[in-house]
Design a protein around this nucleic acid. Sequence first.
DNA 1: TAGATTGTTAATCGATTAACAATC
DNA 2: TAGATTGTTAATCGATTAACAATC
Lengths: 219, 219
Amino acid sequence: MTARTTSETARDIPEATVARLPVYLRALTTLVEAGTQTCSSEDLAAAAGVNSAKLRKDLSYLGSYGTRGVGYDVDYLRYQIAREIGVTQDWPVVIVGIGNLGHALANYSGFRSRGFRVVALLDADPERHDEVVAGVDVRAFDDLEQIVADQGVAIGVIATPALAAQAVADRMVACGITSILNFAPAVLSVPDGVDVRKVDLSIELQILAYHEQRKAQSA
Amino acid sequence: MTARTTSETARDIPEATVARLPVYLRALTTLVEAGTQTCSSEDLAAAAGVNSAKLRKDLSYLGSYGTRGVGYDVDYLRYQIAREIGVTQDWPVVIVGIGNLGHALANYSGFRSRGFRVVALLDADPERHDEVVAGVDVRAFDDLEQIVADQGVAIGVIATPALAAQAVADRMVACGITSILNFAPAVLSVPDGVDVRKVDLSIELQILAYHEQRKAQSA
DNA sequence: TAGATTGTTAATCGATTAACAATC
DNA sequence: TAGATTGTTAATCGATTAACAATC
């Protein structure tokens, strides 16, 4: 890590706040689309599904973008949050593993509309190559290094079976990818400096089952 | 909520711990499949990607299932965790919205193998009815009430576009579903007593983008 | 000025971690 | 008994919340 002077130092935003910024961004986008120009912290909090104290505390880490007695300019606040998250620029992304989930991800319009561009779909199975999914050619996994270098890819998505996931992650890291979104049900080990986030469909269901079971017990 | 005597009171397990139990369960299943019979908290923590202090603290909320000086019986601990989560029984689940993501979810083998059974796929589009996905007929959304009543469904999955999600949730709640897993990029409002969990693919990517942007700045 | 609403403070709550006594 | 490892304690850290002074 390089030392920075105070003025350069990005404010340290708590992880819990970072995780909610995209939620606020989406709520603001909805408000913009509805033609709303100004909103209070109460309004925005309701739209985002949090309480207003938490919202104001979260926004306070970014700066002071509201007007006391008035509220927030929806469009301005939306831009500030987008800039803070980093989605005013476009992030090229590769998806590895084009099974059912990979297909769904490739077709997911929410990526493109939120600052992400799927530049390549890779699969180990030669049968899949030259298939076209969501307007993008499926290519050989071995093309990874070339694509990452050419397109400056920093973010990779793993949608392979669990057994392949670690090997894919290793290759990604080796060629310079430093952020991985992992849909495979496997724990990945990566060096320091590489971020991994995990989405596990069945884990979410299990958490619901736990609470459901308790409801049944107390009924 | 009904009052309960002390002996009936289920131990109150912190949410953060509940969210990790499925991770431990998966790690234990992997160990069982590898033929491992005993493991230390250090071993299991490594397999689950947490530190061993956290693991032991988490397990302590469930009871005392290890042996000092020895470790944990893998199979026994796995059963205890599965029982605590509630996945020793089978949970019937309905999925509403059979687009790309709904397809992927319907085909996801991780549901069935972890205590969930997809009993129905519903879609508002009549063109999709009588399609068969993952061996299950796609049926009309209007069949929801019937299916929930017949099969005793408590958990619903929403994979519709954002605009339809709240209406689907309302119908689910009205016919007795008390746990909802929401993949639609929308904030749902539901009455007390109904649990909603949200999986948002683009939010995870945005969190990665935030950190990626900061890495680039400090480089 | 009066009313409204932000941004901040301080108290509270919950989660994490390291250390170690208990005990196999 | 000696070595290993759990289960628990207590300290620390981070997140949430309510209240309100600042200010439009």
